[in-house]
């Protein structure tokens, strides 16, 4: 039971280790001559102005809210899909009803103009 998860842990470890080794080799082989101009923020030769961490657009936030709704939906739909072969027709239709309610939510957001990128 635990065996596949050990393999996954080892594979993820190897996936971190190999690029780590490559970057370490680069660090060993590459030149190391830092200076202030080289390390300054790259903006195509123009000096950077003001704070880097600007506020993000409000639209991103609204999309994130819609995303949360649909992601939680997935949590409920995966057990339904796994148990599909044991379900009766009316149980499947109940799942369809659930999806329809969510689709109605998406449609409501759409009509409200939330999905426009402004």
């Amino acid at each position: 039971m635990l065996e596949p998860w050990i393999f996954i842990a080892l594979l993820l470890g190897a996936g971190m280790l190999l690029p780590g080794v490559a970057i370490a080799a680069n660090w060993l082989l590459g030149p190391k001559k830092p200076n202030a101009i080289k390390e300054s923020t790259y903006e195509c030769g123009i000096e950077t102005v003001g704070e880097t961490y600007v506020q993000l657009k409000g639209s991103y936030y609204i999309y994130a809210l819609i995303f949360v709704v649909f992601d939680i939906e997935a949590v409920f739909l995966f057990p339904w899909a796994v148990a599909y072969n044991e379900l009766q027709l009316y149980m499947v239709l109940e799942g369809v009803l659930f999806i329809a309610i969510l689709a109605a939510g998406l449609f409501y957001a759409w009509r409200k103009g939330v999905l426009e990128w402004v």
Binding site: A22, I23, A25, N26, W27, L29, G30, P31, K32, K33, P34, A36, K38, E39, S40, T41, Y42, T52
Partner: peptide, 11 residues
Amino acid sequence: LVTKELITPTG
């Protein structure tokens, strides 16, 4: 790429 310098930006 291996022989290039690894530059870390300030900040």
